[in-house]
Every structure is written in structure tokens, then in C-alpha cells.
């Protein structure tokens, strides 16, 4: 077996790698905390905007181009600029945590935004007309027809965002924060390639596990009627 692979497996199998304040378990929790907070903040921004754009059809061109353009922003660059701008203005750890959060929120907004407005737009036109015909107001149509109809695409936007967040949250370690990125940064600094590779594997596994979890949530949350309709198509 390749030497690095063997050392990586040894590192993963060593109980000392998992426990303690710098262990995989604690680092994974830190990683998840930062990831979920970022997803929440991004969703609070992107879902309402996406619903509004999808429902009214207004400023659609802006949302489309913004979602595309923001994807091109390099996360590492945003992190450096945000840290250097915020260091003189904030005290303590917040000066590092806020920039990391900003980076991940910026990263997560495009997939959630486009999933949301696309979902609303894709709602069955016949269902929307029927709702209007029944005398529902615009807000009622949005709440009772469009949001439930858009839910599968909103959730897939959230899932896509979360995959990217978990992968990218490793860069928080560059500015001294915790999370699984510590294994990559510290491993590289001390030329401990087994630790780097092991840490990268843990990130990948965590990302897939959370993705499956969100898929399960989606299955429970989406109206069974929609699922059947999707299958029928």
C-alpha cells in the first residue's frame, strides 16, 4: 500500500486523532456550527428575495445576473479583504468569525436564490390560476400554492449551498478559527500529509452525510402529491 495512504489510515484509526479539543469530533462540531449558521443567514437573505422575484417576476434579470456574478467571487480573496478591513473595527474573535461567515454567506446565496425563484416560477400554472380563481389574494397564492410547489427546488438549492459551504468552511482555519480546515492548514505547516489527507476525507464524508440528511428532510417536507406528480412525469 502507498505510504501516504497507510499513514492516513493510521491517522484516522488513531483514537487520539478523534478526541480532545483539537480532535476530529470537536473540529467537526465547530465546522457544522459555522456551516449551519452560514446556511441560515444565507437562507434568510436569499429565500425571501427569491420568493419575491419568482412571485412578482420583477427584477428577475437582476437576480439571474447577480446569482451568476456572485459565484465568480473568489472566497479566499473575500476572506483576506474582510479580515483586513474588519480587524481594526472589531474586538476579539469576532474579527475573524464575521469575515468567515461573510465568505460562506456570499458563497451560499446564489444557489439558494436561483433555486427559490426558479421553484416559484416552475409552479404549475394551472394550480396558480385555480387558486386565483378561488379568490385567493397574492399572499395566499404565494403561501399556499407557490411555496409548497417551489419547495423541492428551494431545498435542492439549500442542499447545493450546504455542500459548497462545508467544503469551503475549511478556509476559516487560515485566519485561526477552528473547524476541519485546521487539519489541512496545520498538517501542511508541519508537513504532516497524513493529517491533511485524513482531514480532507473527513470533510468529504461530513459534506455527503449532511447532504443525505437534507435530502431526508426534503422527503419529509415536500407534499406527497408533488412527489407523485414528479414521478408521473
Amino acid at each position: 500500500m502507498n505510504e501516504t495512504v497507510r499513514l492516513t489510515l493510521e491517522w484516522l484509526a488513531d483514537p487520539a486523532s478523534w478526541t480532545g479539543p483539537g480532535g476530529i469530533l470537536v473540529r467537526s462540531l465547530e465546522h457544522l456550527r459555522l456551516s449551519f449558521v452560514s446556511l441560515l443567514v444565507a437562507a434568510l437573505v436569499a429565500v425571501p428575495v427569491g420568493l419575491w422575484v419568482g412571485h412578482t417576476g420583477r427584477l428577475r434579470w437582476l437576480a439571474v445576473n447577480l446569482a451568476g456574478g456572485v459565484r465568480a467571487i473568489p472566497s479566499l480573496g473575500v476572506l483576506f479583504v474582510a479580515v483586513l478591513l474588519l480587524l481594526p473595527r472589531l474586538r476579539g474573535d469576532l474579527a475573524f468569525e464575521l469575515p468567515a461567515l461573510i465568505v460562506l454567506v456570499v458563497l451560499a446565496i446564489p444557489p439558494i436564490l436561483s433555486g427559490t425563484y426558479a421553484g416559484v416560477e416552475a409552479t404549475d400554472a394551472a394550480a396558480r390560476d385555480a387558486a386565483r380563481g378561488m379568490g385567493m389574494t397574492g399572499a395566499q397564492v404565494l403561501r399556499q400554492v407557490e411555496i409548497p410547489g417551489a419547495l423541492p427546488l428551494i431545498l435542492s438549492g439549500l442542499r447545493a449551498a450546504m455542500l459548497q459551504i462545508i467544503g469551503t468552511a475549511t478556509i476559516a482555519a487560515i485566519v485561526g478559527l477552528g473547524g476541519l480546515g485546521r487539519f489541512l492548514i496545520d498538517g501542511q505547516a508541519s508537513r504532516d500529509y497524513a493529517q491533511m489527507a485524513g482531514g480532507a476525507l473527513v470533510v468529504a464524508v461530513l459534506a455527503l452525510a449532511v447532504d443525505q440528511l437534507l435530502a431526508l428532510v426534503g422527503r419529509l417536507a415536500v407534499s406527497p402529491g408533488l412527489r407523485l406528480a414528479a414521478r408521473a412525469q
Binding site: R91, V175, G176, I185
Partner: peptide
């Protein structure tokens, strides 16, 4: 110990600003 991996400039800024 706060590990700062983005070069000495970041370390300098963190020292200057009290982090």
C-alpha cells in the same frame, strides 16, 4: 495560540489591533 496562515501581514494587523 491563534494560528494565522495568511502571511506576516495578517499577523501584524492582528497584533496591531489587539486580537
Amino acid at each position: 495560540f491563534r494560528s494565522l496562515a495568511a502571511g506576516s501581514n495578517l499577523t501584524v494587523q492582528a497584533l496591531k489591533n489587539g486580537q
